[in-house]
């Protein structure tokens, strides 16, 4: 049986201080190789200052069937957003 090696997900940081964003995936047998492959596949045009790789099999993802119980309860907690509050006219730096 052929092996194309394990699947890894690649996250790229475009500039120092920026969040890591999912860029795609690569195949590799170990961490070192996964990092090098990610570098050669996703940063050829100097688009990175940092790289994360993680085995695809190790990622836990939320389930669509659960998305109402996971995410909907947050929708009505509008008091968590700063725009919820009325600030008296004239107040500064708040």
């Amino acid at each position: 049986m052929d092996t194309q090696l394990a699947l890894w997900e690649v996250f790229v940081q475009s500039k120092p201080g920026q969040p890591y964003k999912h860029a795609g995936s690569v195949h590799a047998s170990d961490k070192q190789m996964a990092l090098q492959n990610a570098r050669d596949v996703y940063t050829r045009r100097g688009e990175a200052s940092g790289l994360w790789v993680v085995r695809a099999a190790d990622i836990a993802a939320s389930d669509l069937a659960d998305s109402d119980m996971f995410f909907e309860p947050a929708n009505d907690k509008i008091y968590r957003h700063p725009t919820f509050y009325e600030i008296p006219a004239g107040a500064k730096n708040i």
Partner: peptide, 11 residues
């Protein structure tokens, strides 16, 4: 020997 290594050698 596989696609990723192909790109690595080209680099």
């Amino acid at each position: 020997p596989f696609l990723e290594e192909d790109l690595a050698q080209t680099n």
